[in-house]
Amino acid sequence: MAVTHTEEFRREAVRIALSSGLSRTRVAADLGIGKSTLGHWISQYRTADLSVPEPQADLVRENERLRLENRVLREEREILKKATQFFASQKI
């Protein structure tokens, strides 16, 4: 059974893909959609007006930057957890 996404979800996915600085593969994986689906939506909506009112544009950019930073910090935390487990299991 195919999943149907709302128009709002599609537009937000396109906006994130075009403005986040992340690869399309990463954005698609994060959103739980296929890369080809995201590419199709981007080509479909590229000419559509997906802009955000100027006062909110800075907030949108900052939000995306913080999401990326948060993702990196989570990955670093997981690496440190694994390293801690590894070294704790080593006999001295």
Score class of each variant (00 low, 15 high):
R74F: 08
L66H: 11
A2N: 04
R67G: 15
S19R: 14
K81T: 14
T4G: 09
I16N: 00
M1D: 11
R65G: 04
R61P: 00
E75P: 01
L59F: 07
A83Q: 14
L31Y: 07
T6L: 04
S19M: 12
E54F: 06
G21V: 03
I79C: 08
P55E: 05
L18G: 02
A57V: 03
F87K: 11
S19N: 15
E64F: 12
Q56R: 15
A88W: 10
D49T: 01
I92T: 13
K81Q: 13
R74W: 05
G39D: 15
E12K: 08
E78W: 00
A88K: 14
S20I: 06
L38H: 03
I92A: 10
S19G: 14
R26C: 05
L59C: 11
V27R: 03
K82I: 07
M1E: 09
L18F: 01
R15V: 06
L80P: 04
F86A: 15
L38S: 03
E76G: 02
R10A: 07
S89N: 13
R15M: 05
T47E: 15
A57I: 00
L80Q: 11
S36T: 14
K91P: 09
L59T: 14
S20P: 04
E62F: 10
R61I: 07
L80N: 11
F9P: 04
F86M: 13
F9V: 05
E8A: 11
K82A: 14
A83K: 15
A83P: 00
S20G: 08
L18M: 12
L38M: 05
R24M: 09
V52L: 03
H40C: 04
W41Q: 04
D49L: 02
G21E: 02
D58V: 15
R77K: 12
S43Y: 02
S89T: 05
F86K: 13
S43K: 13
L31A: 12
R65C: 07
W41C: 09
S19H: 15
E69D: 13
F9L: 00
A83I: 09
W41P: 01
P55R: 01
